[in-house]
Design a protein around this nucleic acid. Structure first.
Lengths: 131, 131
DNA sequence: CTTATTGCAAAAGGTTTGCAACCGA
DNA sequence: TCGGTTGCAAACCTTTTGCAATAAG
C-alpha cells in the first residue's frame, strides 16, 4: 500500500531544490507550471505524508502558514520577524538539550524543535540604508 | 492610552491560576461563568495584547490552537504527542543556545522557542496498563 | 467628552475532507 | 481489478476584523 505518484515525486523533488522553506501555497504555485491540473489539496496531502514518512520537515511558525523543508536531518531554524524569511541553522552541539530536558522530565522526549527569531541580515542592511 | 478592563484582568488572573497552558477557547469557557456576556473575540484580543505586553506567553503548537501561559519568564515546553497536554520545563542552563546560534548567523537573534515533544508520564502509564 | 474596549456577527486564512474519477501495480 | 491518489468544491477550525454600543479616565 502506497503507490507511486508523479505529483508526490514532483513535490519532494521541488523541495529538494529550495533552501527557503516554502509554504504549501508556494509549492503549489511553482508546480502548477508543470502540472496545470495540480490541486492545492494534493499538495497538502503529500506534504503531510512526506513529513510523516520523515522525508521532509514541516515547520510551524506560529503566525502564517507552515513552512516545509526538504532536508529531513535534524537542524534548527531562524525566522525573520520582518520579512518572514526562514534560514537553516546547523548546530550540531545543540542536541544535548534533549538530555538536559530529560533531567527535569519523566516522560519520553522524542525530539525538539527550536525556532530562533529576530532580524535577518538583509533586513538589517535595509534598516541601515534608510538611516 | 490603555484603559482598564475587567475582562482583561479576569483573563490574566485566570491564566495565573492554571498550569496546563489553556487555549483561548478554554479561557473563554471558564470565564463565561463569571462574565456571561463575554465574547471569544475579546478573549483573543486580550490574550494577544497581554502577550505583546509581555505579561503572558503565547505558545503555538503546530497542530491545533495556540496555548497560553500565565508565566512570562522564559522557559521551555513539552507537548505530549498523544494527549496534547503541555508541561513547563525549567532549564536555566539552556539560554546559551542563542549564543551558539549567533556563531553561525550574522543577523540579530532576539530569542528562541523550544518545544519538546514526546509522550508524557500519564500516557506512558496508560500504555503500560494496557499491556 | 473622548477614545479604548466590548459583543456580535461576519470574514479571513490555512488546512482538511467527501466524493467521483483516475491511475498504478 | 483493487485500492491508493487526484481534482474539485465544500467544510472546517482557529483567529481576526468591522461596526455600533458601552465603559473608563
Amino acid at each position: 500500500m502506497l503507490k507511486h505518484s508523479k505529483q508526490r515525486d514532483a513535490i519532494e523533488q521541488f523541495l529538494a531544490t529550495r533552501y527557503d522553506h516554502p509554504t504549501a501555497e508556494t509549492v503549489y504555485m511553482n508546480l502548477r507550471e508543470e502540472y496545470p491540473k495540480l490541486s492545492l489539496a494534493t499538495v497538502y496531502r503529500n506534504l503531510s505524508l512526506l513529513a510523516e514518512l520523515g522525508n521532509i520537515q514541516k515547520i510551524p511558525t506560529g503566525n502564517g502558514p507552515d513552512r516545509f523543508d526538504g532536508r529531513p536531518e535534524p537542524h534548527n531554524h531562524f525566522l525573520c520577524d520582518e520579512c518572514g524569511s526562514m534560514i537553516d541553522l546547523q548546530m550540531n552541539s545543540i542536541d544535548h538539550v534533549d538530555e538536559i530536558a530529560a533531567q527535569t522530565f519523566d516522560g519520553v522526549i522524542k525530539g525538539h524543535s527550536i525556532l530562533f527569531y529576530g532580524i535577518c541580515l538583509e533586513c538589517l542592511k535595509k534598516e541601515k540604508e534608510q538611516k
